[in-house]
């Protein structure tokens, strides 16, 4: 399907928003994003609510998985579509209102200035008010694991706000369909020696996002997925 020609410097920046049952938050999130970025793609991961309809009426392009596959799979679907549309930059952005549009804009700018392959959002360089001490501890442990296994000098992990150049988006292939994709992306950054920078970002933990977010036991599932994928690679 042919789309309109680029008009400004954000026209070839695609915001990819994976979403599953996000009807409670996605409308305002998309309006805020669309105020700045003209190209917003929601990958509706077979939601049971009106996530897809709300996204379409907000003005986003919507792809719908016929079955629920997981956030990692939704991201890869979105990246595939954005690349096919000629995206120069792909931004991954959460649907639950945790991320700030201003951070995304600053990160896109940083990517263009530094010509890095990726810009990774870091809540530990920025701010994360209302983050529980248990989550903080878990994320610190996960970051340590990532630093040890990949050798990357990162201060945060499992942060959904990332900016990828076209080169990086073409090279990274997410095979972890569910939540372990965040670690997998960093592993691929290390293996493929992609250049990256971290940028401070603010994560807003609201009642909604905390209720929607992963339970702490999810970290065990992520660990299991990573181990299984290594065994069967």
């Amino acid at each position: 399907m042919q789309q309109r020609a680029p008009q400004n410097d954000l026209d070839q920046v695609w915001i990819v928003v994976p979403a599953y049952n996000e009807a409670g938050a996605i409308g305002p999130v998309l309006h805020a994003v669309l105020d700045v970025f003209p190209r917003v793609l929601v990958v509706d991961d077979c939601s049971n609510d009106h996530t897809g309809d709300l996204s379409a009426s907000a003005g986003a392009t919507v792809l719908r998985h016929p079955i629920n596959l997981g956030q990692g799979a939704a991201l890869q679907t979105g990246i595939d579509y954005a690349l096919a549309q000629g995206a120069e930059i792909v931004v991954t952005f959460d649907a639950d209102g945790q991320h700030s549009v201003a951070d995304a804009v600053a990160m896109v700018r940083l990517l263009r200035e530094t010509r890095c392959d990726l810009i990774l959002g870091s809540r530990f360089l920025g701010a994360a008010p209302n983050m529980s001490w248990r989550k903080r501890l878990l994320l610190r442990a996960a970051t340590l694991y990532t630093r040890l296994t990949t050798g990357l000098d990162v201060s945060d992990t499992h942060n959904g706000l990332r900016v990828l150049s076209r080169r990086a988006a073409e090279r990274i292939r997410i095979s972890q369909d569910r939540m372990a994709h965040a670690s997998e992306i960093l592993t691929q950054v290390a293996v493929q020696k992609l250049s990256y920078r971290e940028a401070p970002c603010t994560i807003s933990y609201t009642k909604y996002s905390m209720a929607k977010g992963q339970p702490l036991s999810g970290s065990l599932t992520i660990l299991r997925d990573l181990v299984v994928r290594r065994l069967y690679r």
Partner: peptide
Amino acid sequence: LRDLARAQALRDPKVPARELDH
């Protein structure tokens, strides 16, 4: 199954009217 689901999703995008070529 994932590849099939992805192919179907990519084949049938819901594009907002303002995005379509005139």
